[in-house]
């Protein structure tokens, strides 16, 4: 790999753009193609453009057999993100675990005594109101949203933004009863059953988790399942 190619890959990643790197494993020829360039590639090489689009969609790198030899198509999708609404106790282990699993984590909570640097060292914090914060983030298909406050004033606005986005995972902490009344409120706001079914509630896999760290494991497990078993 040429150093210039590596620098270009790192730049694309830093700017959160999707791209693939094609490397001919016989000649060493390299070509970095951004998702934004696919439309123009479509005109000259429709077959390749489709292969790249498919690899980006499934987030799977692969080797292509071509007339010029095997070409490795390496997918560079934007980083996974997790937005945690509610800087509560469970958010502390969840933020650390999600970071380890490769997510860029942001914790949103307008209550500054909760979202403090002392409680969340090294974590990106936002003290904006959740709907404003989430709208600013531009939730995409590489983003998971988890609400943990139990407080309709904070959780509901976040869920309303998340349900209108492509977020691959939406989860909301609360008992079955809390979740039922949550769905009632969202229904009154105009969301249909099919849309609301995207919310995982009560949040997390049913593994009998008790402590905040165990509940974080159950949530991250469910997020992983949504990410990896969806397609």
């Amino acid at each position: 790999m040429k150093s210039e190619t590596l620098e270009a890959v790192l730049k694309v990643r830093a700017e959160k753009r999707a791209a693939v790197l094609l490397t001919n494993m016989l000649s060493g020829d390299e070509r970095l193609i951004e998702a934004a360039d696919l439309a123009s590639l479509q005109a000259t090489d429709a077959d390749l453009a489709e292969q790249i689009a498919s690899a980006l969609r499934s987030d799977k790198s692969r080797t292509l057999e071509t007339d010029d030899g095997p070409v490795f198509l390496n997918v560079f999708n934007p980083a996974l993100r997790m937005i945690i609404v509610g800087a509560v106790h469970i958010a502390q282990p969840l933020a650390r675990m999600a970071d380890l699993a490769g997510y860029a984590v942001t914790v949103v909570d307008p209550r500054r005594s909760f979202a403090s640097v002392e409680r969340f060292p090294g974590v990106s914090l936002s003290s904006e109101w959740p709907d404003d914060a989430l709208a600013d983030f531009g939730l995409d298909a590489r983003t998971a949203v988890v609400t943990l406050t139990h407080d309709p004033k904070l959780d509901d606005p976040a869920l309303e933004v998340a349900l209108k986005s492509d977020a691959f995972y939406i989860g909301s902490l609360g008992s079955n009863r809390t979740h039922a009344s949550r769905l009632e409120r969202l229904s009154e706001s105009g969301f249909d059953d099919q849309t609301m079914a995207r919310i995982h509630g009560p949040v997390g896999l049913n593994i009998g988790a008790k402590s905040p760290a165990e509940i974080a494991v159950s949530i991250l497990g469910q997020v992983t399942e949504a990410l990896r078993k969806a397609s």
Binding site: L6, E7, T106, G122, L125, S126
Partner: peptide, 24 residues
Amino acid sequence: MSEQQTDLAAWPDDVLETAASWKN
């Protein structure tokens, strides 16, 4: 927006970042 930014470059296992820094 009121956001305290973290150091994303601190990811311990970013292999390509490490490759670039070794080369440098």
